[in-house]
Amino acid sequence: MCGICGCGEGHVHLDEHEHSHEHDHNHTHSYAAVHSHAPGLSQVRMVQIEQDILAKNNQYAHENRRYFSDHGLLVLNLVSSPGSGKTTLLTETILRLKDEIGIAVIEGDQQTARDAERILSTGVQAIQINTGKGCHLDAHRVGHALEKLQLQDHSVLFIENVGNLVCPSAFDLGEAHKVVVLSVTEGEDKPIKYPDMFHAANLMILNKIDLLPHLDFNVEECIQYAKQVNPRIKILSLSAKTGEGMDNWLAWLKAELQLQFIDYA
């Protein structure tokens, strides 16, 4: 989180942490001009950097992840295209679990606080991040949202990302898993049309299965496509609206939360 930030436009802190060793490898190639003191000669030289473009985001994500781990939090980054039913899935999940498990939600949308209001109406903490022109949440903004939430240890934090199957795939927020939600009204070939996201996710939820009798959606084909781009992905079918399949999802959540209690050396 932003112990490292100081924020405003502060972005000089990257090299204080794990990336600092990379700088040891930095060296300048001394082209002739480097040691030249001739006035008027512009000293053009080459500098090797070897730095990941996403290094800054990854550093914030690393800080977030450390915080989550210290507090035994299960953090899930929910991603999908707009309209897949993420918010309904969340409200239904919260209503079923809030009496046994602490839950909080970070909502990302381009504009409005409508989703956060829907979550708040279930009685759990929620905070809205509006990304404005941005197309995804980044680890830095999530870090700031964490400062405003009072998270209990060993609770679940859902981060509902901006509805977008492209950009959020590249931005680690520090979560335990990306969970990609795909509704059966979208077409079974989404996993191969947007492979990055399905590749980055560990769990796929096939939502709105109550509508299957009215659609030509081929479930088997969809699952096959998802496994093509990500052989390790796990898939759950459910309907947040009717409750079908929700037990599986709740069992997965509880099992994953249990894993956060383990104290690794």
Partner: peptide, 24 residues
Amino acid sequence: MHEMSLCEGILQTLEQQAKVQDYQ
């Protein structure tokens, strides 16, 4: 358009490295 964010990340690295590697 996350290419924009990537470029902002690149610029930050360039600015940060300018101090370390001493270039203008």
